[in-house]
Nucleic acid binder design. Structure first.
Lengths: 110, 110
DNA sequence: TTGACGAGTAAGTGATCTCTTACGCATCCT
DNA sequence: AGGATGCGTAAGAGATCACTTACTCGTCAA
Protein backbone atom coordinates (compact mmCIF):
# COMPACT_ATOMS: atom_id res chain seq x y z
CA UNK A 1 0.00 0.00 0.00
CA UNK A 2 3.02 2.22 -0.27
CA UNK A 3 2.74 2.64 -3.99
CA UNK A 4 0.79 5.52 -5.32
CA UNK A 5 -1.45 4.01 -7.94
CA UNK A 6 -3.30 7.24 -8.52
CA UNK A 7 -1.05 8.75 -11.11
CA UNK A 8 -3.40 11.06 -12.93
CA UNK A 9 -1.50 12.50 -15.85
CA UNK A 10 -2.03 16.15 -16.55
CA UNK A 11 -5.03 16.93 -18.74
CA UNK A 12 -3.04 19.50 -20.71
CA UNK A 13 -0.48 16.87 -21.55
CA UNK A 14 -3.23 14.43 -22.47
CA UNK A 15 -4.80 16.78 -24.99
CA UNK A 16 -1.51 18.07 -26.37
CA UNK A 17 -1.36 15.21 -28.85
CA UNK A 18 -3.40 15.62 -32.00
CA UNK A 19 -4.50 11.99 -32.11
CA UNK A 20 -5.80 12.19 -28.57
CA UNK A 21 -7.81 15.28 -29.33
CA UNK A 22 -9.25 13.49 -32.33
CA UNK A 23 -10.18 10.55 -30.16
CA UNK A 24 -11.99 12.89 -27.80
CA UNK A 25 -13.72 14.53 -30.75
CA UNK A 26 -14.86 11.13 -31.96
CA UNK A 27 -16.18 10.20 -28.56
CA UNK A 28 -17.97 13.51 -28.26
CA UNK A 29 -20.47 12.04 -30.70
CA UNK A 30 -20.93 8.66 -29.15
CA UNK A 31 -19.35 6.04 -26.95
CA UNK A 32 -17.32 3.73 -29.16
CA UNK A 33 -15.35 0.47 -29.09
CA UNK A 34 -11.63 0.51 -29.79
CA UNK A 35 -11.96 -1.08 -33.21
CA UNK A 36 -14.07 1.80 -34.48
CA UNK A 37 -11.73 4.38 -33.01
CA UNK A 38 -8.65 2.68 -34.39
CA UNK A 39 -10.14 2.64 -37.87
CA UNK A 40 -9.87 6.42 -37.96
CA UNK A 41 -6.11 6.39 -37.60
CA UNK A 42 -3.15 5.30 -39.64
CA UNK A 43 -1.20 4.13 -36.64
CA UNK A 44 -1.36 0.59 -35.29
CA UNK A 45 -4.16 -0.48 -32.97
CA UNK A 46 -1.83 -0.91 -29.99
CA UNK A 47 -0.72 2.68 -30.50
CA UNK A 48 -4.36 3.75 -30.30
CA UNK A 49 -4.75 1.64 -27.19
CA UNK A 50 -1.85 3.49 -25.64
CA UNK A 51 -3.41 6.84 -26.40
CA UNK A 52 -6.66 5.60 -24.92
CA UNK A 53 -4.76 4.59 -21.82
CA UNK A 54 -3.36 8.07 -21.41
CA UNK A 55 -6.80 9.60 -21.81
CA UNK A 56 -8.22 7.08 -19.39
CA UNK A 57 -5.51 7.74 -16.83
CA UNK A 58 -6.07 11.46 -17.09
CA UNK A 59 -9.74 10.87 -16.33
CA UNK A 60 -10.93 12.15 -19.68
CA UNK A 61 -12.43 8.79 -20.59
CA UNK A 62 -14.26 5.97 -18.89
CA UNK A 63 -14.28 2.40 -20.04
CA UNK A 64 -17.16 -0.06 -20.16
CA UNK A 65 -16.72 -3.68 -21.11
CA UNK A 66 -19.28 -5.28 -23.34
CA UNK A 67 -18.21 -8.84 -23.92
CA UNK A 68 -14.85 -8.68 -25.59
CA UNK A 69 -15.34 -5.08 -26.60
CA UNK A 70 -14.40 -2.07 -24.55
CA UNK A 71 -16.44 1.01 -25.06
CA UNK A 72 -14.88 4.33 -24.28
CA UNK A 73 -16.86 7.31 -23.24
CA UNK A 74 -15.80 10.92 -22.82
CA UNK A 75 -15.93 12.66 -19.46
CA UNK A 76 -16.18 16.26 -20.62
CA UNK A 77 -16.05 17.67 -17.10
CA UNK A 78 -12.44 16.64 -16.93
CA UNK A 79 -11.68 19.18 -19.63
CA UNK A 80 -12.44 21.88 -17.09
CA UNK A 81 -8.79 22.75 -16.40
CA UNK A 82 -8.30 23.56 -20.06
CA UNK A 83 -11.56 25.44 -20.32
CA UNK A 84 -10.85 27.40 -17.16
CA UNK A 85 -7.33 28.27 -18.15
CA UNK A 86 -8.23 29.41 -21.62
CA UNK A 87 -11.22 31.21 -20.14
CA UNK A 88 -8.86 33.64 -18.47
CA UNK A 89 -8.02 34.96 -21.88
CA UNK A 90 -11.56 35.63 -22.99
CA UNK A 91 -11.16 39.21 -21.86
CA UNK A 92 -8.38 39.64 -24.38
CA UNK A 93 -10.59 38.61 -27.20
CA UNK A 94 -13.34 40.79 -25.87
CA UNK A 95 -10.94 43.68 -25.39
CA UNK A 96 -9.58 43.37 -28.88
CA UNK A 97 -13.04 43.06 -30.26
CA UNK A 98 -14.09 46.11 -28.34
CA UNK A 99 -11.06 48.02 -29.49
CA UNK A 100 -11.79 46.99 -33.05
CA UNK A 101 -15.37 48.06 -32.73
CA UNK A 102 -14.30 51.38 -31.27
CA UNK A 103 -11.84 51.82 -34.05
CA UNK A 104 -14.40 50.98 -36.68
CA UNK A 105 -17.04 53.25 -35.22
CA UNK A 106 -14.47 56.02 -35.00
CA UNK A 107 -13.32 55.66 -38.58
CA UNK A 108 -16.87 55.46 -39.83
CA UNK A 109 -17.66 58.68 -38.02
CA UNK A 110 -15.80 60.61 -40.70
CA UNK B 1 15.71 28.90 -50.00
CA UNK B 2 15.04 25.22 -49.77
CA UNK B 3 14.97 25.18 -46.01
CA UNK B 4 11.71 25.72 -44.28
CA UNK B 5 12.46 28.26 -41.60
CA UNK B 6 8.81 28.59 -40.66
CA UNK B 7 8.61 25.79 -38.19
CA UNK B 8 5.69 26.90 -36.07
CA UNK B 9 5.37 24.44 -33.24
CA UNK B 10 1.89 23.42 -32.33
CA UNK B 11 0.14 25.74 -29.89
CA UNK B 12 -1.26 22.80 -27.94
CA UNK B 13 2.22 21.48 -27.41
CA UNK B 14 3.43 24.92 -26.42
CA UNK B 15 0.83 25.28 -23.68
CA UNK B 16 1.07 21.70 -22.49
CA UNK B 17 3.93 22.58 -20.15
CA UNK B 18 2.97 24.14 -16.87
CA UNK B 19 5.86 26.59 -16.82
CA UNK B 20 4.91 27.87 -20.25
CA UNK B 21 1.32 28.42 -19.20
CA UNK B 22 2.60 30.32 -16.19
CA UNK B 23 4.75 32.46 -18.42
CA UNK B 24 1.72 33.28 -20.53
CA UNK B 25 -0.26 34.06 -17.40
CA UNK B 26 2.47 36.41 -16.25
CA UNK B 27 2.55 38.16 -19.57
CA UNK B 28 -1.21 38.46 -19.61
CA UNK B 29 -0.73 41.22 -17.07
CA UNK B 30 2.09 43.09 -18.72
CA UNK B 31 4.95 42.81 -21.14
CA UNK B 32 8.04 41.79 -19.19
CA UNK B 33 11.79 41.32 -19.56
CA UNK B 34 13.30 37.88 -19.14
CA UNK B 35 14.88 38.66 -15.78
CA UNK B 36 11.50 39.36 -14.22
CA UNK B 37 9.97 36.25 -15.75
CA UNK B 38 12.87 34.04 -14.68
CA UNK B 39 12.57 35.25 -11.10
CA UNK B 40 9.22 33.45 -10.86
CA UNK B 41 10.75 30.05 -11.51
CA UNK B 42 13.10 27.71 -9.76
CA UNK B 43 14.74 26.57 -12.95
CA UNK B 44 17.79 28.20 -14.46
CA UNK B 45 17.47 31.30 -16.61
CA UNK B 46 18.57 29.46 -19.77
CA UNK B 47 15.77 27.00 -19.16
CA UNK B 48 13.33 29.89 -19.05
CA UNK B 49 14.87 31.25 -22.23
CA UNK B 50 14.22 27.92 -23.88
CA UNK B 51 10.59 27.97 -22.85
CA UNK B 52 10.30 31.52 -24.14
CA UNK B 53 11.75 30.34 -27.42
CA UNK B 54 9.12 27.67 -27.77
CA UNK B 55 6.37 30.17 -27.04
CA UNK B 56 7.93 32.62 -29.46
CA UNK B 57 8.21 30.00 -32.19
CA UNK B 58 4.61 29.00 -31.71
CA UNK B 59 3.61 32.60 -32.23
CA UNK B 60 2.23 33.02 -28.74
CA UNK B 61 4.77 35.71 -27.89
CA UNK B 62 6.48 38.60 -29.57
CA UNK B 63 9.81 40.03 -28.56
CA UNK B 64 10.93 43.64 -28.32
CA UNK B 65 14.45 44.67 -27.56
CA UNK B 66 15.04 47.53 -25.21
CA UNK B 67 18.75 48.00 -24.83
CA UNK B 68 20.07 44.81 -23.42
CA UNK B 69 16.69 43.69 -22.24
CA UNK B 70 14.19 41.70 -24.24
CA UNK B 71 10.59 42.29 -23.47
CA UNK B 72 8.12 39.56 -24.22
CA UNK B 73 4.52 40.22 -24.98
CA UNK B 74 1.64 37.81 -25.32
CA UNK B 75 -0.27 37.39 -28.57
CA UNK B 76 -3.57 36.10 -27.22
CA UNK B 77 -5.06 35.59 -30.67
CA UNK B 78 -2.70 32.71 -31.15
CA UNK B 79 -4.52 30.84 -28.40
CA UNK B 80 -7.47 30.60 -30.77
CA UNK B 81 -6.86 26.92 -31.67
CA UNK B 82 -7.15 25.98 -28.02
CA UNK B 83 -10.14 28.20 -27.44
CA UNK B 84 -11.88 26.90 -30.53
CA UNK B 85 -11.19 23.28 -29.77
CA UNK B 86 -12.35 23.47 -26.20
CA UNK B 87 -15.30 25.55 -27.36
CA UNK B 88 -16.70 22.48 -29.08
CA UNK B 89 -17.33 21.02 -25.68
CA UNK B 90 -19.30 23.92 -24.30
CA UNK B 91 -22.46 22.14 -25.31
CA UNK B 92 -21.56 19.30 -22.99
CA UNK B 93 -21.32 21.58 -20.03
CA UNK B 94 -24.55 23.22 -21.05
CA UNK B 95 -26.21 19.84 -21.60
CA UNK B 96 -25.09 18.53 -18.26
CA UNK B 97 -26.23 21.68 -16.60
CA UNK B 98 -29.58 21.38 -18.27
CA UNK B 99 -29.88 17.74 -17.36
CA UNK B 100 -28.99 18.59 -13.79
CA UNK B 101 -31.55 21.34 -13.75
CA UNK B 102 -34.16 19.01 -15.20
CA UNK B 103 -33.27 16.41 -12.64
CA UNK B 104 -33.46 18.91 -9.83
CA UNK B 105 -36.76 20.33 -10.96
CA UNK B 106 -38.11 16.81 -11.36
CA UNK B 107 -37.01 15.69 -7.91
CA UNK B 108 -38.32 18.87 -6.36
CA UNK B 109 -41.68 18.23 -7.99
CA UNK B 110 -42.40 15.61 -5.33
C1' DT C 1 37.79 51.08 -21.88
C1' DT C 2 36.63 47.81 -19.00
C1' DG C 3 33.77 45.26 -16.13
C1' DA C 4 29.03 44.04 -14.88
C1' DC C 5 24.73 42.79 -16.66
C1' DG C 6 20.82 40.83 -19.56
C1' DA C 7 20.05 37.28 -22.25
C1' DG C 8 20.61 33.76 -26.10
C1' DT C 9 23.20 29.51 -27.74
C1' DA C 10 25.91 25.09 -27.45
C1' DA C 11 26.51 20.79 -25.81
C1' DG C 12 25.44 17.07 -23.27
C1' DT C 13 22.51 14.03 -20.28
C1' DG C 14 18.83 11.48 -18.49
C1' DA C 15 13.95 11.06 -18.78
C1' DT C 16 9.92 10.63 -21.38
C1' DC C 17 7.17 10.03 -25.71
C1' DT C 18 5.46 7.57 -29.50
C1' DC C 19 5.60 4.32 -32.22
C1' DT C 20 6.40 -0.70 -33.77
C1' DT C 21 6.11 -5.96 -33.48
C1' DA C 22 5.23 -9.88 -30.72
C1' DC C 23 2.53 -11.87 -27.53
C1' DG C 24 -1.22 -12.99 -24.07
C1' DC C 25 -5.88 -13.41 -22.73
C1' DA C 26 -10.87 -13.33 -22.65
C1' DT C 27 -14.89 -13.87 -25.32
C1' DC C 28 -17.59 -15.36 -29.05
C1' DC C 29 -18.91 -18.66 -32.60
C1' DT C 30 -19.29 -23.15 -34.81
C1' DA D 1 -13.11 -27.98 -28.25
C1' DG D 2 -10.82 -24.84 -31.09
C1' DG D 3 -10.27 -20.98 -34.18
C1' DA D 4 -11.28 -16.11 -34.79
C1' DT D 5 -11.93 -11.67 -32.79
C1' DG D 6 -11.22 -7.58 -29.74
C1' DC D 7 -8.02 -5.57 -27.19
C1' DG D 8 -4.42 -4.90 -23.69
C1' DT D 9 0.60 -5.39 -22.36
C1' DA D 10 5.70 -6.11 -23.04
C1' DA D 11 9.76 -4.84 -24.95
C1' DG D 12 12.54 -2.15 -27.54
C1' DA D 13 14.04 1.60 -30.77
C1' DG D 14 14.44 6.21 -32.08
C1' DA D 15 13.01 10.85 -31.40
C1' DT D 16 12.15 14.56 -28.57
C1' DC D 17 11.99 17.02 -24.04
C1' DA D 18 13.57 19.53 -20.26
C1' DC D 19 16.90 20.50 -17.91
C1' DT D 20 21.96 21.69 -16.62
C1' DT D 21 26.65 24.17 -17.06
C1' DA D 22 29.71 26.71 -19.93
C1' DC D 23 30.19 30.04 -23.11
C1' DT D 24 29.33 34.17 -26.17
C1' DC D 25 27.61 38.57 -27.37
C1' DG D 26 25.78 43.14 -27.11
C1' DT D 27 24.73 47.03 -23.96
C1' DC D 28 25.29 49.97 -20.13
C1' DA D 29 27.80 52.53 -16.66
C1' DA D 30 31.96 54.14 -14.22
Amino acid sequence: MVETLNRKPDVFTAVSHRARRQILDLLAGAELPVSVIAKQFEMSRPAVSQHLRILLDSGLLTEQRHGRERHYQIVPERLAPVRDWIGQYERFWDDRLMRLQKHLSKTSEV
